[in-house]
């Protein structure tokens, strides 16, 4: 396992937020409350962790940001989502992808019958690249995830969980996003693979300035690489602090379980 990385510094601190959620409420099927009142900001160049137990509202918050709520027959019923200062509440997810927001779904969601390389290609479609540019961009992704190159011709459904997670992230990066929403990238993966994936995320953030909002149940790993964090419980933000401060607290698990009164 790698040594402790030095406490990261938020490069975007003080800048206008890249994305801002203002008191959003989400309802599913016009009846079931998804989240009650979420406000958060992510500055350009930040990695922000979204922590909380199952059902705290992490996935719903990400879907409200990427527009994918629509695929679950849900909508933002109160509040608004701003991206670079513009209201994007309720905009279709495929349009948001062209504007720079990409969502890596919980459970990876690779295209199982497509080969690894075809999966990556789909990520480039919205930019309508020529053959040469496509090859160049695929090469870059293979540079980050060398394992994917060896599995190029394999149907994605037959690769391992870690490879699928890398593929889902690589495919998302090929849309050239400004904001990447990652939902539970550690789910079901061996700790060493989780560490590898988070190190690649942190590396991309440092070298390319890509902004990440990461929903995670794995507190330790996500706080080691994030700049700031929000803790959700019962569809509300119950705590927010820098990752360094959150690491110091030993009551996070209690908040997760809804035991602490914050």
């Amino acid at each position: 396992m790698s040594t402790q990385t030095p406490p990261p510094v938020a490069t975007g601190a003080g800048l206008a937020p890249l994305v801002e959620l203002r008191g959003i409420e989400v309802v599913y099927d016009a009846a079931i409350l998804g989240v009650a009142d979420i406000s958060l900001t992510v500055a350009p160049g930040e990695i922000v962790a979204l922590l909380g137990a199952n059902g705290a509202g992490k996935s719903t918050t990400l879907k409200a940001t990427s527009g994918l709520l629509v695929a679950d027959r849900a909508l933002v019923s109160r509040g608004s989502v701003l991206f670079r200062g513009e209201d994007i509440t309720g905009v279709a997810p495929n349009l948001l992808a062209t504007r720079g927001i990409v969502h890596v779904l919980e459970g990876r969601h690779v295209f199982g019958h497509l080969t690894v390389e075809e999966n990556l290609r789909t990520g480039t479609f919205l930019r309508r690249l020529g053959r040469r540019e496509t090859e160049r961009d695929l090469d870059e992704i293979y540079g980050y995830f060398p394992r994917l190159r060896t599995k190029r011709k394999t149907p994605a459904g037959l690769t391992s969980g870690g490879e699928q997670q890398m593929l889902a992230i690589g495919r998302a990066l090929l849309t050239r996003p400004e904001l990447v929403l990652l939902d539970e990238p550690s789910m079901g993966l061996a700790p060493i693979i989780v560490e590898e994936i988070f190190e690649i995320i942190a590396g991309l953030n440092r070298t390319k300035g890509t902004t990440f909002l990461v929903a995670e149940q794995n507190i330790a790993v996500s706080l080691r690489h994030a700049h700031r964090g929000y803790v959700l419980d019962g569809g509300k933000v119950v705590l927010t602090a820098t990752a360094a401060d959150l690491r110091e607290r030993d009551d996070l698990h209690e908040i997760y379980l809804g035991l602490a009164s914050v």
């Binding site: 495929n94 199982g112 495919r171």
Partner: peptide, 21 residues
């Protein structure tokens, strides 16, 4: 063609990377 097969496999993922369903 590849977009169509992608949609057949996973509609949500297709939407998330900008495929116009």
């Amino acid at each position: 063609g590849i977009s169509l097969r992608a949609v057949a496999d996973d509609t949500r993922a297709a939407l998330s990377i900008g495929i116009n369903l």
